[in-house]
Design a protein around this nucleic acid. Structure first.
Lengths: 191, 191
DNA sequence: CGGTCTCTTGACGGAGTTCAAAGCTAGTGG
DNA sequence: CCACTAGCTTTGAACTCCGTCAAGAGACCG
């Protein structure tokens, strides 16, 4: 069922069944296996992904050649390289399934047409991006305010589901430190 | 003149003169002196600020009691604590004029009414927030990818105007390191 | 010219990385 | 259903970047 996306849209705008049936035609439902890549560095990031079930992560290869995770997306979150998606430029990122994943994906052109045909959705995406922007600002504040150790504790208490579902080395990567150091922090907090 | 704001809106949507004249009534034009605070920690951040002339910065007092700058805004940029502005919650931030500043400011309720009355502007703000979100994601990528020293060099080459207009200790604060260390980096690059 | 704000310099310490190696776990094929 | 292997996690020692502290040198303002 695509009901998850419908429910999410309806948190911000009211839709008739008829509208919904038109809207859903712009999307494609796709499954990906664990570790499968949805997009690769160097490609143009043609789609925006809405997660119905599973976990995605976005990462890039840093200057030292190490995978650096910058975002996770779970159920009811959108994920894409916004910059590449909007401008049609090449992306520096990979998007990969952490677990087996079900998504609804929209291509850039369909996204733009969808907004033309259904201006109601301008409001939906305005709200979504406002929230996403506010969240990212909060994240920068945390990064600036807290030590790595504090960031881990904050993350593990505020997002406990991730600790269950995502391997430690990816958490370390997302928090921008080494698996070795994460291991050290965990030892400290247990004893 | 408020022509700066009008020009900015028209980058994303077409407006008749009549529409513009209605829209502008939702805004208030205000001047602030150097170092004057537009909002204070603990208040509700009631307005969103569009900079016509000058520079604003947003900062918070970190756990060590030090001012930590998280954003600058120059001409044609919006600045607010998005989270507080949207939800009406108390802000953790200060917004302060780095130079004498002219802004157009909208209150939260006027912003919401404006969007009701002029749905065209949903598109404008959707685009603005999309871009802001993409920019913040790029910023996190930079923070994760580069050493402090590289961050300074990247900042100074990509935003040279800020080096001219903003004192060094604020640049250091924005890049999340100490004025002492910034001084050391500068010495290295000169010799 | 005095005083406050900004920038520089240097010595020291600690949070977090790097490297190397061993222990664990889970997925795969036989 | 077990065994093997590749990938994940832990440990510890050495090292490094960058923050802290203290003090001095400019610069800008009344």
């Amino acid at each position: 069922m695509e009901e998850e996306l419908k429910a999410h849209l309806e948190k911000f705008v009211c839709l008739s069944n008829e509208e919904w049936e038109q809207i859903v035609t712009y999307f494609k439902r796709v499954s990906y296996r664990k570790k499968e890549n949805l997009i690769l560095e160097g490609q143009i990031c043609k789609s925006n992904f809405f997660v119905i079930k599973g976990i995605l992560r976005k990462f890039f290869i840093n200057e030292k050649g190490v995978e650096q995770t910058t975002e996770f997306a779970i159920e009811n979150w959108w994920l894409t390289d916004t910059f590449s998606f909007l401008n049609g430029s090449k992306t520096d990122f990979y998007i990969q399934a952490v677990e087996p994943v079900e998504v609804m994906q929209v291509k850039r052109e369909d996204y733009l047409n969808l907004l033309e045909e259904h201006p109601k959705l301008e409001k939906y995406f305005r709200c979504i991006y406002q929230k996403a922007f506010a969240a990212t600002q909060m994240r920068i504040k945390f990064i600036y305010n807290y030590s790595r150790e504090d960031l881990y504790h904050h993350f593990s208490t505020s997002q406990p589901e991730f600790l269950q579902r995502v391997p430690q080395y990816l958490i370390a990567s997302y928090l921008n430190f080494t698996p070795e150091y994460l291991s050290e922090i965990r030892r400290k907090s247990i004893s």
